Simulated scan of single mutants.
Amino acid sequence: MQTVAAVVVTYNRLNDLKKCIDSLQKQTRLLDAILVINNGSTDGTAEWLADQSTLRVITQANLGGAGGFATGIKTAYQADFDLLWCMDDDCLAAPNALQELLESPNIGPCIKNCMSVSTKDDAELAFYVDRPNRSYRQVTDMTSFDLVYGVASLFNGTLISSEVIRTIGIPDEKLFIWGDEVEYMTRAQKMGFPVVTVPNSVFYHPPSFDRNGIPWPGAWKQYYAVRNQRRVFQNMHGDKYGNLVFLQWSVRETLQQMMEKRKNRIYNFLLYGEAAFDSMLNNFRKRPETILTLRLYRFMHK
């Protein structure tokens, strides 16, 4: 029987983490290990984890979701688990979520994702996916399929074959947050591995909060989504053409911010421009405290 390890990345969400771990420990198909990557939490998470003898714990500085999953996937892969089940700390797995993933159609080495359902409305997906030929917004948009190809909400109940990791490596910790999961998914697809959602396997997750624009100062996170998008386009279109696609996309998206009727549209415009400029210069070193637009916002709102 294949061995399965859960990889959970957490940062300052102890109450959510407790619920997540509880849902993992109640799976109808028991996990062989639960590995928690604590990204330098300061809310009592480290103390709670120290008392959990059944968990494997790694504590590190806050390297964002990308750095957390890079550490977790590398550690579990080197421990020779066959499959890695990866998730953020604010996920809740249905009791049979893992069993349904394992019993879904065998398509060889791949990435299989649970269907992410909104915790606020169980008829709605937590993450909208809009494609040229089809949109996935409601649970019923997926449930008529055994597998939904090319759609997955990494890292929210994401089952990764060790053979995939052997070929494509681990997430790039330089990406920090927002977009690192899409980069990893498109990297797998680029190397020929199927990426699918399994509708029978359900994960519950808070709905994506960027659907109608993120209020400042929290909007600084969008910096990473814009900056990291170049890597996604390069996976999809190749390095040279991917750069051109990103340049066209980023100019359009940056200018669009000035046209939006939002309170902080000037900061959004500056943030998008800063992110696009840094991406083209291959500057992936910035952390939240060094994002210039965020520093300007905080200076102006002392």
Rank of each mutant, 00 (worst) to 15 (best):
V4G: 07
V8R: 01
R13L: 13
L24R: 06
Q25G: 10
K26Y: 12
R29P: 09
L31K: 10
V36E: 12
I37D: 07
G40N: 09
S41V: 09
T42D: 10
G44K: 07
D51T: 13
Q52V: 00
S53G: 15
N62S: 02
L63F: 07
G65N: 01
F69Q: 03
I73V: 11
T75Q: 02
T75G: 05
Y77D: 08
Q78E: 11
F81C: 06
L83D: 03
M87G: 00
Q99N: 14
E100Y: 02
E103P: 01
E103Q: 15
I107M: 11
P109F: 05
N113C: 15
N113W: 00
M115R: 12
A126V: 11
A126G: 03
Y128G: 01
V129E: 00
D130W: 06
S135T: 10
R137I: 11
D141Y: 05
T143A: 02
V148Q: 05
G150Y: 06
V151D: 07
S153V: 09
L154H: 04
G157I: 04
G157E: 04
T158C: 15
I160G: 09
S162C: 11
E163C: 03
G169Y: 08
G169D: 10
G169E: 08
I170K: 08
L175W: 03
E183F: 15
T186F: 05
T186Q: 13
Q189T: 03
K190C: 06
K190E: 07
G192R: 06
T197E: 12
Y204R: 05
F209E: 12
R211W: 04
G213H: 01
A219M: 05
A219H: 06
Q229K: 15
G238P: 07
V245H: 01
K263G: 08
Y267C: 06
D278F: 09
N282F: 01
F284L: 13
K286T: 00
R287H: 04
T293R: 04
L294D: 00
L294E: 09
H301R: 08
